[in-house]
Simulated scan of single mutants.
Amino acid sequence: MADLKRTVLYDLHVELGARMVPFAGYEMPVQYPMGVLKEHLHTRAQAGLFDVSHMGQILLAPKSGRIEDAALALERLVPVDLLGLAEGRQRYALFTNETGGILDDLMVANRGDHLFVVVNAACKDADLAHLRAHLSDTCDIAAVTERALLALQGPAAETAMARLVPDVVDLRFMDVAIRRWDGVELWISRSGYTGEDGFEISVPEGFAEKLARKLLDMDEVAPIGLGARDSLRLEAGMCLYGHDIDETTSPVEASLAWAIQKARRRGGAREGGFPGAERILSELETGPARRRVGLRPEGRAPIREGTQLFAADSGGEPIGQVTSGGFGPSVGAPIAMAYLPADLCEGDIIHAELRGRRVPARIAALPFHQPSYKR
């Protein structure tokens, strides 16, 4: 742990009794005394506060002063319509490589005169280098290094956040806004990684602990660690980079084709023009050989990441592998995600290799838990 970084909220985590573990180069809270199961259910029922300050925050400012130029520049690297992204809105995006694989997934917000990008912790240095290598001719690119990032998630998140910033009630899912609290700017988005309504809040590091304590003092809000964050996002059918998506998986294989708008597809106004376009556009038209699906194993035993999957309960070569799996506390049963041949359908039975025996699992629709976003 000696070589790991710490977020500005490290001392608060320890004070709250968190169990700290290595994650993406940081010492992070995996759970608090409440425990992963109760933290998960508390977030679904009320509101959970997550420290996600390890993630990367990046500003892209167009040198021309025209936000359209920054949007078009970033479109060189992602298969997403950013020119059509309205001011005050954000969109899910994917950095792709020349073979159509995914380098990272990210959020892009249009803040009027610049773009604000949030990337995964393990990829943030590579993502920053990637942006600078390809967009420095068009944009000034700056890593945000003195702001923490908090996520407040759950059905009571609006009630809690509105006590501090009343007009957050006017924000819809995927809206972004800059609001003042206690004399500083909060960069707020109505989004998250749990399948619940909520907010992600970028706050100056010097005010992060004060903001966290203000929220945690509210009856509805509890601190939540990485363990529950993982089970929440799994129930919501959300990908974890390096597990469910990586440089070998295409957005279409990953069942993320919804993130590629019409403007970037064949016949669209700005068709292609991103790394790996030939493969990705072809898969959009003809379908991929495999795809990410949900699985509902029979019985109570979870099937974990790396579990081999088979077409039958005896003999034959593996036809796929679990990428994320565990017990879904809100579902009350084991759940998993995996890549399987695309010709298999929802309801089909496959078999998982579990401790030397084959366990039946049914292909299921994603997500396992329906989201409750404020539209």
Rank of each mutant, 00 (worst) to 15 (best):
M174E: 14
T159Y: 01
L171S: 08
G195Y: 06
A162D: 08
V176R: 01
E205Y: 01
P155Q: 11
P204S: 11
I201K: 04
W181R: 11
S189Q: 07
L171G: 10
R190D: 14
R163G: 09
D182P: 01
D175L: 04
V203F: 06
W187I: 10
Q153E: 14
L186Q: 08
I178L: 03
P166G: 03
E205F: 00
I178C: 09
S191G: 11
G192M: 12
I178G: 04
R179G: 07
I188F: 05
R163S: 14
A156Y: 04
P204R: 07
L171A: 13
L152D: 11
F173E: 13
L152M: 04
Y193W: 14
E196C: 14
A151S: 15
E205C: 14
I178F: 00
I201Y: 05
M174V: 08
E200P: 03
V184R: 00
T159N: 08
L152I: 06
E158Q: 13
G192R: 04
A160S: 15
D175A: 09
A160D: 10
A177E: 13
A177C: 05
D167V: 03
V184Q: 02
A151C: 10
G192A: 11
G183L: 05
G206L: 12
G206I: 10
L171Q: 02
T159S: 11
D175F: 01
S189L: 06
G195C: 07
R163T: 15
V169D: 06
R172C: 08
V165Q: 06
M174K: 14
E185C: 03
W187H: 13
V169F: 00
Q153T: 04
M174F: 13
V203K: 08
P166R: 03
F199C: 08
I188R: 02
L186K: 04
G198N: 04
Y193R: 09
V184T: 13
G183F: 00
L164A: 06
I188M: 02
F173W: 15
A177S: 15
G183Q: 08
V203A: 04
V176D: 05
R190K: 15
S191H: 09
A157S: 14
P204Q: 09
E185G: 06
M174D: 13
V165K: 05
D175T: 10
R172S: 12
P155W: 04
D197C: 07
W181P: 12
V184M: 00
S189V: 12
G154H: 02
P155F: 07
G195S: 12
R180H: 13
L186C: 01
I178A: 13
V169I: 13
S202E: 15
G154A: 09
L152V: 10
S202I: 05
D170G: 09
M161N: 11
E205P: 01
E205K: 14
R172E: 15
G192K: 00
G198R: 01
A157N: 06
L186G: 06
R180F: 02
G192H: 07
I178M: 02
L164T: 12
L152T: 11
R163F: 00
F173P: 03
G154R: 01
P155R: 02
E196W: 03
V169Q: 08
I178K: 11
Y193T: 13
S189E: 13
R163D: 13
A160H: 06
S191C: 14
A162M: 03
S202G: 15
